[in-house]
Write a protein that binds this DNA or RNA. Structure first.
Length: 1146
RNA sequence: GGGUCAGUGGCGGAAUUGGUAUACGCGCGACACUUAAAAUGUCGUCUGCCUUAACGGCGGAUGUGGGUUCGAUCCCCACCUGACCCACCA
């Protein structure tokens, strides 16, 4: 056989396979299907390193074996290329990301091709291909139609470096997962997917999946289901109620304060009632300033501030407790408020200790004393007891008493009398029982323990509420004991080592030992309720629902999982199939008389408008600061000259003359003018009124106020200003409080109260907002299915703006869409956010089934044929993102009938990283990157494949070793040279044939379970054995080649053809093991004496137990071990071993 | 702090219904082939002690300490170390 030239062989067969379309997947009913999937790569500019193909090699091996075993195999590959890395690369290199992606994809593909994978490239997908993302957009549209996609204005995680919002899943330790920058909270409009609607199903169906347990566990943690109670605390002298979430309502009687998160909606309101308003405002502001990392650092000291004067009422006992604002309570979990039970919660404990708040113990550990349990038929007495643990510092010994009538050893102990505390009681007991007089307290051993036992000395069952106090003897001064005490027990000093549950008669001992010498801490375990009204004495785990009901609360299920923030303020992503009505872009807020701009109404309006994407200008120009209306106008004019027909002006508290001036100046150029709370009463002259009304036919008066005694002719106004929504006082009187109503002809809005200019409260604001709604970007409109895809346009600059708008917003010819014709024509505006990187990868496995279909995401028949992915291989780092998102989308697609299965990936196998030779993560930064191209060129793809599989367990991280790879190359060459030993008249030994069959079984099984390192080692063993034979049959060699074909497809194909086979080895049937041939007829049996191997011998594998025993006993090596001993027992494992259990003859 | 997994020669690792610990490979050593080197092949390679010319023999070792068992890398308990994931989630 000629020399092994890997380059020539590999190129030749790769070309040939492509030409023959050897690996094309077909749907046909005659064969069972097998769908093997890799997590498709994200082609970066760096190209592949040797770690990347590891998973692909494994799926390649599995898919090749399955194909040879007669399955229709689907093993596709594609590219995920939207998102930040490609975009950042484009910014850096100043190239269109589409071009860079195409280049990177081509490079990746080439790198993959030389490794010889069996991908069906005719099914390649690319998430950035409009033909592909059309369907990503389609899925989004369906989600939107079903109410599972919505716009939210809640604060979200914002990365100031990437200049985009992030999903919860994209934040790691408070930092942006991509760039490591600390994320901020920023309020902005976002598209959000309601993944929480699927939380229960995502959790429950995990049980149906054959996935690694740690990945399932991370998903469970991420979903974070917890059951608990929602309970309301009333606020004294206030209408509001604080709703808290707790998993431990059984501790309700231990509540000593209530805590609100700084962002809690009630805080703003409650702080007005707080005596320390400034302090609270400062604390809240500070909390908002902090980054998530600072906030959530668990090591950080807990901080908070009391709402001084605000009092909450505990619903179970009507007790009044203080209210705090503290940032250890998270705004976005539960209800954003907690009831604090410092005795039984570590965080509350830490906070209470720091601020010196009361700790009330209501749960006691429960001990049932098994050695001396309560007895039936005896009365039960509940007592408060104390144990005294007294140490003599001179000797280190502990004081104990040994009971004379009972086999007990206890500490000095006894009941706590009325009016006594536990320390006094303990001292008294020590004195009475042992006579020692002078003690000092060293430690109080935490809270009480409830113990149940039978008190034999009193012939009753005890429920003891026990505490314990530790003392040191000050001196050994001691009084003699009473005769009565002397009769009962003996005083002893014990070695501290003897203080163990087996040496002492205390059910509580383990608790004391656990607390001894430690700082006191919260008891967070289960136990018996104390001081809890009617619930006292009950078990904590049993009363939760009952006590919740008693508190008027409800039992609820909560999830940690948050809805998926789905929009990014970046260029390189799928555009949303969404149009917005073009509305106001900018608003001018003008405050007139005396308003300062600080007032609540202004702030609220500004925030509301900004949240809807309106740019708000609110110059601090007030009529109050100007001597004349004209000078006011003059200051205002330059600030407003840019305002145009798309803009609105809102005037608040403008006097009549100012309003008229404003209208006259601006009504021609601006879109709409709204006047709120205007003192139109100033307009005394009806002609002026007419002027005003005629000047603003397109404008609105939302509310008028009368402050001076001047009657208004409402009918006249409404006739003149048909758009007006007037709110007038019911009886036209001026005396507050008065009620404004709208004439019955229009929508009636009632507004109670004068409001002291704080018109943010009540319907005056709402009425205006209702009007404004028509002018704001509102209810999005879905792009019709026929108009998909919404193609991502080319853009000059990819830089993110940082303002919360994507670069797309600057492309007006793309953003503005004209719909309708003639009179109905209107211009709509495209959504300019783009989808996150995870969108395309959430469903790509479906598209492989039917990649070119223009009518359907996937043809239902094909979807039904391929069904679930049978085997999915990829990195464990996707546990809480891709793998949750894809499951979510799949379930949704199931719900709308697109797919027929409830879960996308039946079996998941995670792949371990390949690290650099230095043990560090392979990265350009460390200069430890190994390029597969170099390895393939030097050693060949087959060697690379075998080595990567042989390195170690597949799912384990492991360091690359080019030296270690030599072994794989040698193995390949040995197989190659073995060809020279093929001889038709070869006679192989029976044991070699047996090994061959065992190897078939092992390799088949190992591949199926991705135990590829042992599969390779089995093949090596086989080759080693065959090399020792003088010659081997062609039949055996062909079996070996077929077993090796999935690992080394090129070399085996070459050898296979060289043997005269006309068709590809990769279409040849997989060898079947013959169990009858897989075993030698003789086996080695081990002879043991007392479990130690003393001899071994060969024997027919079906030898009987008796034969084996007889033979072993007669062996000289064994005789010397058995001689003079008595065989107590003989254990025979047929075909394996015989073990003689012997002992000395008595 | 919680979860998951792991710890075996100089190194990567193998060994599962509890039955010969260290397969396979790397490295290392010796030898053969060679003028030489490389390549290749053969043999050896956990460890201590005893013993021999050579052979051989006895004991110990799978992170540590216990337990169950005729027998434990494997099962149980406690602890130590490391990795990964999650974490102020009430």
């Amino acid at each position: 056989m000629k020399e092994y030239d890997h380059t020539k062989i590999e190129k030749k067969w790769q070309r040939e396979w492509a030409k023959k379309r050897l690996y094309r997947a077909v749907e046909s009913a005659d064969k069972p299907k097998f769908y093997v999937l890799d997590m498709f790569p994200y082609p970066s500019g760096e190209g592949l390193h040797v770690g990347h193909p590891k998973g692909y090699i494994a799926t390649d091996i599995l898919s090749r074996m399955k194909r040879m075993q007669g399955f229709n195999v689907l093993h596709p590959m594609g590219f995920d290329a939207f998102g930040l890395p490609a975009e950042n690369y484009a910014i850096k290199t100043k190239t269109n990301p589409a071009i860079a992606v195409a280049k990177n994809v081509a490079r990746y593909k080439k790198q993959l091709e030389i490794i010889g994978f069996d991908y069906d490239w005719s099914r390649e997908v690319n998430t950035t291909d409009p033909g592909y993302y059309r369907w990503t957009q389609w899925i989004f549209a369906k989600l939107y139609e079903r109410g599972l996609a919505y716009e939210s204005y809640e604060p979200i995680n914002w990365c100031p470096s990437c200049k985009t919002g992030l999903a919860n899943e994209d934040v790691e330790d408070g930092r942006c997962e991509r760039c490591g920058t600390a994320v901020e909270k920023k309020p902005m409009r976002q598209w959000v997917l309601k993944i929480t609607d699927y939380a229960d199903r995502l959790l429950a169906d995990l049980d149906t999946l054959d996935w690694p347990s740690h990945i399932k566990e991370s998903q469970r943690n991420w979903i974070g289901r917890s059951e608990g109670a929602e309970i309301e605390f009333a606020i004294k002298n206030h209408a509001g109620r604080i709703k808290v979430f707790t998993t431990r309502p059984d501790t309700l009687f231990g509540v000593t304060y209530v805590v609100l998160a700084p962002e809690h909606v009630l805080v703003t309101d409650l702080l007005k009632h707080a005596k320390n308003k400034d302090e609270v405002v400062k604390y809240v502001a500070h909390a908002r300033m902090m980054t998530a990392i600072e906030r959530t650092d668990a090591k950080k000291d807990k901080t908070g501030v009391k709402l001084d004067g605000v009092v909450a009422v505990n619903p179970v006992n009507k007790e009044e407790v203080p209210v705090f604002v503290a940032d250890y309570v998270l705004a976005d979990y539960g209800t954003g408020a907690v009831m604090a039970v410092p005795a039984h919660d570590e965080r509350d404990w830490a906070f209470a200790k720091k601020y010196n708040l009361p700790v009330r113990e209501v749960i006691a550990p429960h001990r049932y004393y098994a050695p001396n349990p309560p007895r039936d038929g005896k009365k039960t007495v509940t007592r408060a007891n104390v144990h005294a643990i007294v140490r003599n510092p001179k000797t280190g010994e502990i004081l104990g008493i040994k009971w004379k009538k009972f086999p007990w050893t206890t500490f000095p102990m006894g009941g706590i009398d009325a009016g006594e505390d536990s320390v006094a009681a303990a001292k008294r007991e020590v004195y009475e029982e042992t006579g020692y007089k002078n003690l000092k307290v060293t430690q109080s051993l935490g809270g009480r323990v409830v113990a149940e036992y039978f008190a034999a000395h009193k012939d009753e069952n005890r429920v003891s509420h026990t505490s314990a106090v530790c003392f040191d003897l000050i001196d050994e001064e001691r009084d003699p004991l009473s005769a009565e005490e002397n009769e009962k027990h003996e005083v002893i000093w014990m070695d501290p080592k003897k203080i163990t549950p087996s040496d002492m008669t205390h059910a509580e001992l383990d608790v004391w030992l656990g607390r001894l010498g430690k700082e006191p801490e919260a008891y967070v375990g289960e136990g018996v309720l104390l001081d809890s009204g009617v619930f006292s004495g009950k078990k904590s785990e049993e009363v939760r629902k009952e006590i919740t009901k008693f508190a008027g609360g409800t039992w609820v299920v909560r999830y940690k999982l948050k809805d998926w923030v789905f929009s990014r303020q970046r260029y390189w992503g799928e555009p949303f199939p969404i149009l917005h009505q073009i509305k106001t872009k900018r608003a001018l807020l003008i405050h007139g008389f005396e308003a300062t701009g600080d007032d609540h109404w202004f702030k609220k309006m500004k925030k509301a408008l900004e949240a809807r994407g309106v740019e708000v200008h609110s110059p601090t120009v007030s009529t109050s600061h100007h001597p004349t209306i004209d000078s006011w106008m003059n200051e205002l004019a330059p600030l407003v000259k840019d305002f145009g027909p798309d803009d609105i002006v809102i005037g608040h508290s403008l006097g009549g003359n100012a309003a008229i001036r404003l209208v006259q100046k601006m009504s021609k150029s601006i879109g709409r003018l709204f006047l709120v709370a205007s003192a139109i009463g100033h307009v005394r002259n009806e002609n002026e009124w007419e002027t005003l009304a005629r000047s603003m036919p397109e404008s609105d008066i939302v509310s008028l106020r009368q402050f001076w005694q001047s009657p208004i002719d409402w009918n006249r106004i409404t006739a003149l200003v048909p758009h007006a929504l007037l709110i007038k006082s019911k009886d036209d009187r001026i005396i507050p409080p008065h009620t404004y109503t709208v004439p019955t002809a229009w929508k009636v809005e009632e507004w109670d109260g004068f409001g002291h200019f704080d018109s943010a409260q009540g319907s005056e604001f709402d009425a205006l907002w209702k009007r404004l709604e028509d002018f704001l970007p509102s209810e999005p409109i879905l792009v019709s299915e026929d108009d998909l895809p919404v193609v991502l346009p080319k853009v000059k600059s990819y830089e993110p703006s940082g303002t919360g708008e994507s670069p797309l917003a600057t492309i007006s010819r793309w953003v503005n869409v004209k719909v309708g014709t003639g009179k109905n024509a209107r211009v709509l505006k495209r959504e300019t956010n783009t989808m996150p990187q995870w969108a395309g990868s959430s469903w790509y496995y479906l598209r492989y089934m039917d990649p070119k279909n223009k009518k359907h995401l996937v043809d239902p028949k094909k979807e039904q044929y391929w069904g679930q992915v049978d085997f999915y291989v990829g990195g464990a780092e996707h546990a809480t993102r891709h793998l949750i998102y894809a499951r979510f989308w799949h379930k949704f697609l199931y719900d709308i009938g697109v797919v027929s299965t409830k879960e996308p990936f039946a079996k998941l196998q995670s792949v371990g990283l390949i690290m650099g030779e230095d043990g560090k993560k392979m990265s350009k930064r460390f200069g430890n990157v190994v390029n597969p191209d170099d390895i393939v060129a030097r050693y060949g793809a087959d060697t690379l494949r075998i080595y990567e599989m042989f390195m170690g367990p597949f799912d384990q991280a492991i360091s690359w070793s080019t030296d270690g790879m030599i072994g794989s190359r040698r193995f390949v060459e040995r197989v190659w040279r073995l060809r020279d030993k093929v001889d038709d008249i070869a006679h192989e030994s029976r044991s070699t044939i047996a090994l061959l069959h065992r190897t078939i079984a092992k390799v088949s099984d190992d591949i199926a379970h991705i135990r590829l390192n042992t599969a390779v080692s089995a093949l090596m063993t086989l080759v080693n054995t065959c090399e020792r034979e003088p010659s081997i049959t062609r039949e055996s060699y062909e079996v070996m080649l077929r077993l090796l074909a999935p690992f080394a497809p090129h070399m085996t194909e070459e050898l296979w053809r060289a043997l005269g086979n006309r068709s590809s080895i990769h279409r040849a049937p997989w060898p079947a093991a013959n169990p009858a041939l897989a075993e030698d007829d003789e086996v080695t049996i081990v002879a043991q004496v007392n479990g130690k191997v003393r001899a071994e011998f060969r024997m027919r594998k079906d030898a009987s137990q008796e034969t084996i025993t007889m033979h072993a006993q007669s062996m000289p090596e064994l005789v010397k071990w058995l001689d003079g001993k008595e065989v107590v027992k003989t254990i025979v494992v047929p075909g394996k071993l015989v073990n003689f259990v012997v002992k000395d003859r008595a």
